[in-house]
């Protein structure tokens, strides 16, 4: 592996609220190459805020600090708005949980992909952008790209919307894709298809992927490496295939408390949260 694509050191996200300051992310550090990195945690673990902070999408009144937050050598914390805008949607893209809220309801899917493309490839002509958009829709396995191109977001199913979203995010050929629960609003069979597409794109284009999810089972079967987050911290980092040998009791607990088809454990083991984990 060459120099890391993304370097994060001591990332912190704070929210100054009326009731006091809440630290949602408390010193997260990791490096990402051209690989699939999973970030797993339960609600409130700070996994989504980590992804947003990298893109500079922390909602106000959040405040982001880090000792180091660089993407391909560019410091994301001190970069100008212009640079950031160029990076966002150009070299770094994000796929959100629910395509319903991420796609513009009054523009056709094709128009949105074209717009995304031309925002970053200014010199591209319209017909060129159109060809790219159609090719992209094909790449995400749309059965009839030309038809989907003309449709509005409300006219497509959730799975198709999410694939359209991925097409839009990938049309600029980003180096890094941050996917925040990209499949949890989708049906299982559809989500498998979406994952397969993501997987192919990562392997073929050598893209780095941060896959944020609450689903340990899914992440471990999809990613190369997993960060397990709890209360704003990374409590464990491990190779996805070694998940069964997890050391941290939280990871172990998360693994065990899921009912599986393979065996029938009754009652299910529950997680006894040790306050020490949050320290």
């Amino acid at each position: 592996m060459t120099t890391p694509l993304l370097e994060v050191e001591d990332l912190r996200v704070r929210f100054h609220l009326r009731t006091g300051t809440v630290e949602a992310v408390r010193g997260v550090s990791f490096q990402l190459g051209r690989e699939r990195l999973g970030i797993v945690g339960e609600s409130g673990s700070g996994k989504s805020q980590t992804g947003r902070a990298i893109l500079g999408l922390t909602p106000p009144p959040g405040e982001v600090t880090a000792k180091r937050l660089t993407f391909d050598g560019i410091d994301l914390l001190t970069a100008s708005r212009r640079t950031l805008r160029h990076l966002r949607g150009g070299r770094i893209s994000m796929v959100m949980q629910d395509p319903k809220y991420s796609l513009n309801p009054v523009m056709t899917i094709g128009e949105q992909i074209i717009e995304a493309y031309r925002a970053h490839a200014k010199s591209a002509s319209r017909s060129e952008a159109r060809d790219r958009a159609l090719a992209m829709l094909e790449a995400v396995k749309m059965r009839n790209p030309a038809r989907v191109f003309e449709l509005y977001p409300h006219e497509v199913s959730g799975g198709m919307g999410q694939r359209a979203m991925i097409a839009m995010m990938l049309v600029t050929e980003p180096d890094l894709l941050i996917a925040d629960e990209p499949t949890s609003a989708l049906d299982v069979t559809v989500s498998m298809e979406v994952l397969r597409i993501l997987d192919e794109l990562v392997s073929e284009r050598g893209m780095g992927l941060i896959f944020i999810s609450h689903d340990l089972k899914l992440v471990s079967s999809f990613c190369d490496r997993v960060l397990v987050m709890y209360a704003g911290r990374v409590v464990e980092e491990l190779e996805a295939k070694n998940l069964r040998e997890a050391k941290h009791p939280y990871t172990q607990g998360l693994m065990r408390c899921l009912p599986t088809l393979a065996d029938d454990v009754r009652p299910l083991p529950t997680l006894n949260r040790d306050p020490a984990w949050a320290l």
């Binding site: 299982v188 397969r196 990562v202 079967s221």
Partner: peptide, 17 residues
């Protein structure tokens, strides 16, 4: 699908990584 993601169908592609 409930067993998690399976790379079997795209094994050749992921091997290229």
């Amino acid at each position: 699908a409930s067993r998690g993601f399976s790379r079997d169908t795209v094994k050749t592609a992921s091997a290229a990584l």
